[in-house]
């Protein structure tokens, strides 16, 4: 049984990590585009917001129709779901960099890309990181629903427990999800605080 648990935890982690990795890259890129292209910001932020308001079950069902059953589908669902906090925080962070620093960077002769990578992203990093944290913690619980569309992870254990009305099995799947979510929230909040303090 403990072998199944370990496997569930590892699968769960793998699915969530892959999804967060992808949505970090995509989210930061979209955040930068909204920051650079004035009229696109409301479009991109609007779409990410709509994605998040779709109930997760409905979103997963829709995705299942397109992508079929399996891990890929839950990963895509998690990516879409995690986009909003990352896009929004990237955008807000970039906007909030002091105009004097942007001016100084431009005046020193930095190109747009150099300003982004040397000044603007490093200075908004605490906020971007906080977006990633929110996305990750959310994804850990949403990923449980992967079992309904044929994905692996701790959801399978919980589901098995429900079907056999075995409370013990349900808890065995549910507790690790809660513990992981709390642990990541705690650890990443600590890092976040340190990042903010260092930025001051």
């Amino acid at each position: 049984m403990s072998g199944a648990l370990l496997q569930g935890i590892l699968e769960h982690m793998a699915i969530v990590s892959i999804a967060i990795l992808i949505s970090t890259v995509v989210g930061v890129i979209f955040g930068v585009i909204s920051y650079w292209v004035r009229f696109l910001d409301s479009v991109i932020l609007g779409i990410s917001e709509i994605l998040q308001t779709i109930p997760s079950l409905a979103l997963l069902a829709l995705l299942m129709i397109i992508f079929g059953l399996g891990n890929i589908t839950i990963i895509i669902g998690l990516v879409l779901y995690a986009l909003l906090p990352i896009v929004r925080n990237t955008y807000t962070g970039l906007k909030a960099v002091s105009p004097h620093l942007k001016d100084a960077a431009r005046g020193m002769g930095m190109s747009k890309m150099q300003r982004l990578f040397k000044i603007e992203i490093p200075l908004s990093f605490p906020l971007i990181f906080s977006g990633i944290k929110i996305a990750l913690v959310n994804s850990l619980s949403v990923a449980v629903m992967g079992v309904l569309i044929g994905a692996n992870g701790l959801g399978t254990i919980i589901y098995r427990g429900i079907q056999s009305r075995n409370m013990e099995t349900i808890l065995m799947g549910a507790i690790p999800v809660v513990v992981m979510a709390l642990a990541f929230d705690f650890g990443m909040s600590k890092i976040e605080k340190r990042l903010i303090k260092r930025a001051k």
Binding site: S98, H100, L101, D103, A104, A105, R106, G107, M108, G109, K118, I119, P122, L123, A199, K200
Partner: peptide, 16 residues
């Protein structure tokens, strides 16, 4: 701009 030095009032040192 790389051939012209520039100093601003708000100091503008990069905090990172």
């Amino acid at each position: 701009r790389r051939t012209i030095g520039y100093v601003i009032q708000q100091i503008g040192l990069f905090p990172n």
